[in-house]
Simulated assay, not measured.
Amino acid sequence: MAAVTARSDCAATTTSCPGAATKARARAVLDLGGRILSVDATGKPSGDGFDLGPSWFWLGMQPAMGGLVHQLGLHYFEQNSDGDVIFQRMAREAPQRYRGMRQEPRSMRLVGGTGAIISALAEGLPAESIELGAQVTHVSLEGVVVQYLDATGSAQRERASHVLFALPPHLIEAKILFSPALDFATLERWQRMQNSSRSTIVLSKLDVRRFQAQ
């Protein structure tokens, strides 16, 4: 199970390597991207490739995304919608040709693929805040304290103000021990989130105070 561990006030995983920019960007996309994955023509993760996951964003409808793109100094372009579309649903089926439709509002794509955002964010993290190959086992809401097994299997503890889980709620419930135990209302809310395909969950100091008050 891939897990995110926290050091101080940040929680992230990556393998950023100064001096090997292209290789580091590709590695960061693979290790950190989650559903975001940009690959080259051979299907290998690339810092400048084709998107196999999320591909578009809309400046007018997603101002926060647009702001992040500008903040990171990334470049984008309008999605081409002229002409027909070739679509292959599965490898065993022949590609199908469809009449193209112009998008309104126009969607944008990032130069280098959506993985460029992951690479840019990873490069801005200090190396000591990064932990790969770790498995979170226990989250104490009195603090907040995260207990996890590092890549060598050794038990570790970290204190953080926020913990972000980028996992389906049912896996969080099944794989991670919480103390105090999660209340029924929270589990029910997680179930609704899972049914609506929203799988990023944040526990913060506000959650801690609410749990302690129960």
Rank of each mutant, 00 (worst) to 15 (best):
D84G: 04
D40F: 00
V29R: 00
V145L: 14
P168G: 04
D40G: 08
K44H: 15
A213V: 06
I176Q: 01
A151I: 12
I117L: 15
P95Y: 06
G53T: 00
M65T: 09
S196E: 12
G34S: 05
S140H: 05
T42R: 15
T200Y: 15
G19Y: 08
C17G: 05
Q135V: 08
M90P: 05
G143W: 02
V136D: 06
G34V: 08
R192Q: 11
R97G: 06
L52C: 04
P180W: 02
A21N: 06
L37P: 04
V208M: 15
E123T: 03
Q71R: 12
I117E: 04
M193G: 05
T114R: 02
W190S: 05
F77G: 02
C17H: 08
A181N: 11
S119N: 06
L68K: 02
G113C: 03
V202L: 15
Q88I: 06
E78K: 12
V163A: 10
Q156N: 07
L59H: 03
V29G: 00
V144M: 08
S55K: 10
G100Y: 04
R7D: 03
A3C: 07
V85H: 12
Q212S: 13
D48Y: 07
G133D: 00
S38W: 02
N80I: 10
Q156D: 01
Q147G: 08
S197D: 09
G66K: 06
Q71S: 09
T13N: 10
E188V: 14
G112Y: 04
S16A: 15
M193R: 15
T14P: 08
R198F: 09
Q212L: 10
A3E: 07
R89W: 08
D51H: 07
F57S: 02
A41P: 01
Q156I: 02
C10V: 15
L125V: 11
M1K: 10
P18N: 07
A11W: 11
R189C: 04
A155P: 06
V69E: 04
S199W: 14
G133I: 00
W58G: 04
F57T: 01
G19V: 08
I86S: 12
M101R: 15
A120D: 01
P169H: 09
Y148N: 03
M193Y: 13
R159Y: 03
I176L: 01
Q103R: 14
S46H: 01
S38V: 12
L203S: 04
V139L: 12
V202E: 14
R102Q: 13
